[in-house]
């Protein structure tokens, strides 16, 4: 589904990703962990198509197509979704209207008619119930005055509505209390299917108790330096990243 080969990306001339390789197959959940500044958020932003980053080398292939040059909206239409670490506040645009615009833009790209207001309402209600969001929430301006937990739940709510093929969760769990974490994880798990995949970027192993990964990767200095199963996450939580640095030194 997703094949990243030797990816190098920089911002303002500074190289952040330094030859990163990652392959995600349909149905798989991959966790990416790593110390601050390793390039985790850059990786998700580059997959989603943020143009402040320049891809200088390598390829991102999604469902057989190189998407390096695609606009973010085109990537979204193809089924890539990124949940933001810091969701943006947009005063004056309600949650409902934002979702309408988002859903209908995707449908338009697929050559489909807009959903009727009735269909849209049904879809939104159903997904809102899953994320335990109340009606008032839907008529508020997007993320404006939302608590940290509400913002993250809103992200997962949008993901649930858009039903992406590849979901990237960029530190969605940071700062969440246990109830919000469960709701968010539940939203992600509900989307699981043999043809959907997820990349979960996190600092904390805790999330992986709820969203169980098939693979855990360690991202360090712009490269994936170690890959393992869920037990790797436990080890990282317990021992930190110093042992990885030692290992790398020893190998060089």
């Amino acid at each position: 589904m997703l094949k990243i080969k030797d990816l190098k990306a920089s911002i303002d001339g500074k190289e952040i990703l330094k030859g990163l390789n990652l392959e995600v197959k349909p149905g798989e959940v991959h966790a990416v962990m790593g110390p601050n500044g390793a390039g985790k958020s850059t990786l998700s932003a580059v997959i989603a198509g943020k143009d402040t980053f320049e891809v200088t080398e390598g390829t991102i292939e999604f469902q057989g197509e190189i998407i390096n040059e695609l606009a973010p909206e085109d990537r979204a239409h193809k089924g890539i979704f990124m949940s933001f670490q810091h969701p943006v506040e947009i005063p004056g645009v309600t949650v409902t209207n934002f979702i309408k615009a988002s859903v209908n833009a995707k449908r338009a790209a697929e050559g489909k008619e807009d959903l009727t207001p009735g269909e849209m309402l049904k879809l939104i209600k159903e997904k809102a119930a899953m994320l335990e969001l109340d009606r008032k929430f839907l008529s508020r301006s997007l993320n404006q005055g939302f608590s940290g937990g509400e913002k993250k739940r809103n992200e997962i709510f949008q993901m649930a509505v858009l039903e992406p093929t590849l979901a990237i969760l960029d530190e969605t769990d940071s700062g969440l209390d246990i109830d919000a974490l469960r709701i968010v994880a539940n939203g992600v798990n509900n989307l699981k299917s043999p043809n959907r995949s997820a990349i979960v970027i996190t600092h904390y192993q805790r999330l992986l108790d709820y969203i169980v990964p098939d693979f855990v990767h360690v991202l360090f200095e712009g490269r994936i330096v170690k890959t393992g199963g869920k037990e790797l996450a436990m080890k990282l939580e317990e021992k930190g990243y110093d042992w990885i640095k030692e290992e790398l030194k020893a190998n060089n």
């Binding site: 143009d51 979204a76 943006v88 947009i90 615009a101 988002s102 859903v103 833009a105």
Partner: peptide, 28 residues
């Protein structure tokens, strides 16, 4: 720009995303 990227990453085309941000800015 961050807001623009946010909206585009949800599938909203650039022109529409810009328009929504402008409306959001003015609507108060």
């Amino acid at each position: 720009k961050e807001a623009l990227f946010f909206m585009r990453s949800r599938g909203i085309p650039k022109k529409e995303a810009k328009a929504m941000l402008m409306y959001a800015f003015a609507s108060e």
